[in-house]
Design a protein around this nucleic acid. Sequence first.
DNA 1: CTGAAAGCGCTAACAA
DNA 2: TTGTTAGCGCTTTCAG
Lengths: 342, 342
Amino acid sequence: MREKKPDQDKKSNSIEDVARLAGVSIATVSRVLNKFASVKERNRVKVVNAIKQLRFQPSVFAQRLASGKSNVVALVIPRYEGMFYSFYVLELIRGIGTLCEALKLDLLLQLTDTRTPLNLKAAGGIIFADIIGNRPQLEDAFNAGIPCVVINNYIEDLKVNCIAVDNIGGAEAAVNYLISLGHRKIAHISGDLITQPAALRLQGYTLALKRNEIALRQDYIFKTDYSRGQARQAAEKIIKMDDRPTAVFVSSDSMALEVMAVARELGKEIPKDLSIVGFDDNPSGLYGPVALTTVRQPLVKMAQESVKRLSFLMTAKNAAKVEKTILPTELVIRESASPIGS
Amino acid sequence: MREKKPDQDKKSNSIEDVARLAGVSIATVSRVLNKFASVKERNRVKVVNAIKQLRFQPSVFAQRLASGKSNVVALVIPRYEGMFYSFYVLELIRGIGTLCEALKLDLLLQLTDTRTPLNLKAAGGIIFADIIGNRPQLEDAFNAGIPCVVINNYIEDLKVNCIAVDNIGGAEAAVNYLISLGHRKIAHISGDLITQPAALRLQGYTLALKRNEIALRQDYIFKTDYSRGQARQAAEKIIKMDDRPTAVFVSSDSMALEVMAVARELGKEIPKDLSIVGFDDNPSGLYGPVALTTVRQPLVKMAQESVKRLSFLMTAKNAAKVEKTILPTELVIRESASPIGS
DNA sequence: CTGAAAGCGCTAACAA
DNA sequence: TTGTTAGCGCTTTCAG
């Protein structure tokens, strides 16, 4: 089909050119490319030189087609409103991106609308960051036998690897801490409950109250979409309540900072008039007038762990066993919560 | 080489299976896949049904190998300390990722260490986000004839598409504004000067002073790596200076917020004791006790524009002309700067 | 240790 | 409008 044009017309050189220049067969070049130990040193050097001289780079597409394997890791992030204003996503991308580069894996970033099915042949493995409305995508990939790992979401009913963070424990620790400071009237500003972490944090909050025999008040629970706007509304309501909470556990640091700002605008002092505990350990929390007490979650660790595990799954000969991990969270005590009445 | 196993052993079905089931040739299937208008409706339907029935997804690698084209957009981001603590990167990824999904382009994220050469055959086009120590990567890609667009960096000496932001103008506007408020002693906290935007903002600062016949004082210029830590150090020095500046233009909002925090810790009031103007229009700037006056830069627009242009270059038959764009910035006046002495 | 040659799954000329 | 067929640039058996 394509005309055989003279050499200088060629787009770029192929393994054949390298073979010719090195005076060996393309099979040998391929072996050098793939670091087969069997190639005689003399030939290896010739090939390496030819590659250098021609500035040859193999076609990754041909490699993948011929070998049937690909070193492509797809990172699937469901796109939803507010997603991108979060601390969380960037941390994930940072952790995953950095490790992929180190492990020579190609990172395909898929900000999915959750409806479009993924092309399962595009990647050798998939990391699902959270599962929000895209459970079918996960199941398709799982059923197709593609190595998958889910992060930031604990999936019970599928034999799939997952790595999540101890949201319940973290929330409980936060609320227990407030209780230990003497607070009994503790509000909660939750994140978007379509996300598992937000739901679990709410659960942890509930649990802590129950275990401490504090009655759960629905009017102390404020549901948001994680946005600062909704956090602001919630904060205003809280501060203007008749039976005002003395403390609030907020599902993200970004929202907690907003609560702090609102409180100050309304003439309240933090933590004297309102104790606040956030969730994330977002560095921004450090830099206000009052450093934010928060729950640290190991996002980068989770991200990197997922790449390691996926990389293992992608190269494993025999099916590896499925692991479900929950990484611990840690309460970081700073200044935004204090004993009641202090 | 591979044994012909019975059908149920096949990994997944290929275009051939679809053709067989639909009772047409693979060429016709390929035509349907590629939306050729020439296929008779009757056949098209048969093929579409077969595809559905087999849950067939074409091998993107085979497609790319055979066609010689790829719809892969590589986003190359040089990795450097502090990179990821910036507002900037996420905005970029958000803009580029969203548009790539809409245009059905695959996004390959490359957080490069800047030394490793890129595999030029992995992508059909490349977006370079900033050029920091990876100029050779850009030149290689350019010389290889790969469609490239550079963003957030204005490249003069290469006929390459680029889209940047008016850093000089923005900085000048910020400083002019401070001058219009009566300030004469204006400090500058610069970002990492290995980045072009930081260097240009410093230049804009210098220019504004010169045009207003205010002498440039080297001791009023503080060079940082964009980190909050170094911003803090600079802020402390500024506030403790004998001949203290009355205003400061800071090269990023994140650093500006740090300066604000330090000022308050040291008992200074913003803007009365120190006027501050930042750069970025990072939403975080809105939520402190004093809303940050800043310079807005259209990051998402820059990102999206880059995808559009690259997509055009990747499909253009004939070489398109090179465009170099500088997007305008905009001073956003809020509360952190006020007339001197007020 | 090396080379010849048969694919990998698709696209695109060409012929019909 | 459709089918036949020659590649795309590699990997991998199989012989030698």
